[in-house]
Amino acid sequence: MADQSAAGRTRRQIYEDRLRRRSLIIAGSSTTIVVLAVLFLVPMAPGWEKVQKSFFNWDVFAKTFPGLLEAFMLDVAIFAWCAPLIAILGLLVALARDVRSPALFPLRILGAAYTDIFRGVPVILTVYLIGFGIPGLGLPRPWNSPYIWGSLALILTYSAYVAEIFRSGIESVHQSQRSAAESLGLSESDTIRFVILPQAIRRVIPAQMNMLIALQKDVALLSFIGPVEIFRQAGVYKSLLANFTPYVGAAVIFLAVTIPATRYADYLLAKQNRERS
């Protein structure tokens, strides 16, 4: 047993350790090369000085950051009232698309048409059409507020996607669960409410997390119809200071929220995949 060296490791362990060390060295050196290349090559670009001044200006960053953060609270608020409404509307649309009663057939068609239309139109277009169109009817205050109609545009668009995700979750619950519930004499609505939906919703939580992250970013689109949220505020600073750094500041704020959320969604997904295998 000469191979079983001092530490008492098996041949296999020694071999795997060597492999691991080698891949660590390769990964480390290739990362170093790329980082160095970026650090050296980018500043060599002819316009770097200018870009650095107008996009990565520390003084501007420090000066505008608190204001941006304050404006971001408006994004958070819009997000906070849109998200629950999207969840509710999305679930209702998903259920409407699955109703079997012939009396409710129009609901099915409506559900299908709704998801087709709102998934087929770019968000920004929906925001424009609803955000400018409906207040254009000359509604009295506060019903002409871009907050209301801009939020509605987001809610309608996102509910269409969220509904499709819920529906995929409902369809992923095996038919045998329905059989079991029906064989016990449970009604159709009780079967959906107590047996199908709890399982379906659990399964699509990671996917819905991703929708939330996308929504958080798309709130910025409302800036095009009026609300001075972070993107608009950054634009104001840009004009004021003739410098693009506020946009970078806004990006930093978005990333501070979306990166942890994305990591968390990935974690949930990975956990779910582990449980299912």
Partner: peptide, 20 residues
Amino acid sequence: PMPVRRRIGMVFQSYNLFPH
């Protein structure tokens, strides 16, 4: 079918318990 199913119990090969 509901009133009938209440009078006839059924057990399946794959148990079909509600996992949640």
